Amino acid sequence: MEFTSRRITYDTPLPIAEVIARLDKEVNKAGGGPEVTRLLSTAKTRAELESGMDNLVGDRNFVYFAGMAYHNWLNAYHGTADTPQTYAYIFGNPLIAQTMLKYDLNVALHVPLKIVIVERLDGSGTRVAYDDPASVIAVPKASGLGLDPELTKAAEALSQKLETLIQTITRAD
């Protein structure tokens, strides 16, 4: 089965360091990562999961899972030093994810979320890109089947939360 994804990009005049600093704050990078993995692998009850995630997310929607600086290894591989700063971030919220996974476990292909942050070649700003979750999550389970309306609604809610996050980190004040 084939489907089409919708790629969304935001361009901002903000330097990449500012965008990354804002993103780190918004997804609690300092408190996430290994702590999320520990919680998800050791929690025994719904209450424990919810309490743990509430502590990690705070008053925001998402928490940091992992990331990678692509420019470092690309420069090493190619023997260059001119690859624009490029970061991939993986983040999410299992409490949001479960609102979709209960309809289709294939949703796990797309949660947690992933975005790419790339410095403009001339250093004049930053681009943030991601595939719209609703366009890759709310797809038919098989050819000829329609979309599950509840899954679609949950995926669209996730897309809105992600868009709000990206607007927050790219907004030039």
Results as ranks from 00 to 15, higher is better:
Asp104Pro: 14
Lys29Gly: 07
Thr164Asp: 15
Ala47Phe: 08
Leu95Ile: 14
Glu35Arg: 15
Met100Cys: 14
Ile117Ser: 09
Asp131Leu: 04
Tyr70His: 15
Leu147Gly: 03
Gly92Trp: 03
Gly144Glu: 04
Gln160Asn: 10
Ile117Cys: 06
Asp173Ser: 11
Phe65Pro: 00
Asn61Gly: 08
Val107His: 04
Gly31Tyr: 12
Lys25Pro: 01
Leu165Tyr: 05
Met68Glu: 13
Ala142Gly: 05
Asp148Phe: 05
His110Ile: 00
Trp73His: 12
Asn106Ala: 06
Thr126Pro: 12
Tyr77Thr: 05
Tyr70Leu: 10
Ala47Glu: 15
Glu50Met: 05
Ile137Ala: 06
Asp82Trp: 06
Gln98His: 07
Tyr130Ile: 02
Lys153Ile: 07
Thr170Ser: 08
Leu158Gly: 00
Ala30Leu: 06
Thr42Arg: 08
Asp54Val: 00
Val57Glu: 07
Asp148Ala: 04
Ala76Trp: 02
Val116Leu: 14
Ile90Trp: 06
Ile166Pro: 12
Asn106Gln: 13
Met68Cys: 10
Thr126Trp: 11
Asp11Arg: 12
Ala30Pro: 01
Gln167Ile: 02
Leu40Tyr: 08
Met100Val: 04
Thr80Cys: 10
Leu151Thr: 03
Val27Ser: 02
Tyr70Ile: 01
Arg6Thr: 13
Glu50Phe: 01
Tyr64His: 14
Asp173Val: 06
Leu109Ile: 00
Leu49Met: 15
Val118Cys: 03
Ala97Lys: 05
Glu48Cys: 02
Ala172Ile: 00
Ser135Cys: 11
Pro112Gly: 01
Ala69Val: 11
Lys141Cys: 01
Thr126His: 12
Pro34Val: 00
Leu151Gly: 03
Lys29Tyr: 08
Asn75Met: 05
Gln160Phe: 10
Asp173Glu: 13
Gln85Pro: 06
Ala172His: 07
Ala17Arg: 14
Gly52Met: 09
Met100Ser: 13
Ala142Leu: 02
Ala129Met: 06
Arg127Asp: 05
Ala108Pro: 01
Tyr10Val: 11
Leu40Cys: 10
Gly125Tyr: 06
